[in-house]
Simulated scan of single mutants.
Amino acid sequence: MNIEQARFNMIEQQIRPWDVLDKGVLGLLAVVRREDFVPAAHRALAFVDTEVPLPEGENMLPPRVEARMLQDLQVQRHERVLEIGAGSGFMAALLGHRAQSVISLEVKPALAKLATENLRRSGAANVSVVQADGVHGYAAEGPFDAIMMSGSVSKVPEELLKQLKPGGRLVAIEGDEPVMSAVRYTANADGTWSRVSLFDLDATRLLGFPEPARFHF
């Protein structure tokens, strides 16, 4: 496989057509080596439009979804970012290129170790991975300018929204199968939040977040 041609095709055939037009985001995807964050057994899927399996039953989001969420979070160079769900560390690496600093929470020890090692090899010095349950965020280091939730939840907890600075943004995938949407919350100065629906998709759940009650016959 021609790696650079595959990367180019990923950007031009999957990502750009999905309304990812931010030149900074497109440039990052050309230089941050996604294949280095994919487990060796699935390296052939690094540039494919699909979720990529990770250890312990988790998955990387498809490239176009990662790119669109990164674009919609609108991270600036002076900002501090919290990520919920480190996975393999790829999204944290992308965020690290755009932010002042990134803290990425990962509840599963094997994934926290994998993400830490991948980020170290990539030279992401301003990104740290913390093995912790992301349900409650990381108030001790907050508030944050931006929060990225790298997976889906039924509903974004208010506890996380309260860890945003005024003007801060949180991007997540919210809802229940078969209807989920990527959303962006923005913290208002009066302590409320504005919510915008960005696009529809289906995605793997983040662990530990509350699920709606299911009706049983």
Score class of each variant (00 low, 15 high):
Asn118Asp: 04
Ala112Cys: 06
Glu58Trp: 05
Ile84Lys: 06
Leu119Tyr: 03
Val127His: 02
Pro62Met: 10
His78Gly: 14
His42Tyr: 15
Leu54Phe: 05
Met60Ile: 11
Ala67Ile: 07
Ala112Arg: 01
Ala124Lys: 06
Gly96Met: 13
Thr50Tyr: 04
Val130Trp: 00
Gln131Ser: 00
Ala67Cys: 08
Arg80Leu: 11
Met91Glu: 13
Leu114His: 01
Glu117Ser: 04
Pro63Asn: 13
Asp49Trp: 04
Ala86Asn: 00
Val65Asn: 10
Asp36Lys: 08
Val127Glu: 06
Arg64Tyr: 03
Val129Pro: 03
Gly57Gln: 10
Lys113His: 08
Gly85Gln: 03
Asp36Gly: 00
Leu61Gln: 12
Glu35Cys: 06
Ser101Pro: 01
His78Ile: 11
Leu119Gln: 09
Leu73His: 10
Met60Tyr: 06
Phe90Thr: 07
Val107Ser: 09
Gly87Ser: 08
Gln76Ile: 14
Arg68Asn: 10
Val130His: 00
Glu58Cys: 08
Leu95Phe: 14
Ile103Phe: 14
Pro53Phe: 05
His97Leu: 05
Glu35Leu: 10
Met91Trp: 02
Leu28Phe: 06
Asp72Trp: 13
Val48Phe: 14
Gly87Thr: 07
Asp49Gly: 06
Glu66Trp: 04
Ala40Thr: 13
Ile103Gly: 06
Ala132Thr: 03
Arg33Trp: 09
Val102Ser: 04
Leu82Ala: 07
Leu73Asp: 14
Leu114Arg: 01
Leu82Thr: 07
Val32Gln: 05
Val130Gln: 01
Val130Ile: 00
Gly87Glu: 08
Ala40Pro: 00
Glu83Ser: 12
Glu83Gly: 07
Glu79Tyr: 09
Leu61Asn: 09
Glu66Asp: 13
Ala67Gly: 12
Asp49Lys: 02
Leu70Ala: 07
Gly123Cys: 09
Ala46Lys: 04
Ala115Pro: 02
Val48Arg: 08
Arg64Val: 04
Val107Asn: 01
Met91Val: 15
Asn59Thr: 15
Thr116Lys: 03
Thr116Gln: 10
Leu111Cys: 02
Ile103Thr: 13
Ala132Lys: 10
Asn126Ser: 03
Leu105Gly: 01
Ala125Asp: 13
Glu56His: 10
Val127Arg: 06
Gln71Glu: 15
Ala132Glu: 05
Gly96Arg: 07
Val75Phe: 11
Asp36Tyr: 03
Ala41Ser: 11
Arg64His: 14
Phe47Cys: 08
His78Leu: 12
Val129Arg: 02
Ala99Leu: 11
Gly89Gln: 03
Ser104Trp: 03
His97Ile: 07
Arg120Lys: 15
Gln100Tyr: 15
Glu79Lys: 09
Arg120Cys: 12
Glu66Lys: 13
Pro39Lys: 00
Leu28His: 11
Glu58Arg: 13
His42Asp: 11
His42Ala: 10
Leu114Thr: 03
Arg80Thr: 10
Leu94Ala: 09
Asp49Ser: 08
Arg64Asn: 08
Ala132Asp: 05
Leu105Tyr: 02
Arg68Pro: 08
Pro53Lys: 02
Leu29His: 11
Val129Asn: 00
Gly123Ala: 14
Ala30Gln: 12
Glu83Lys: 07
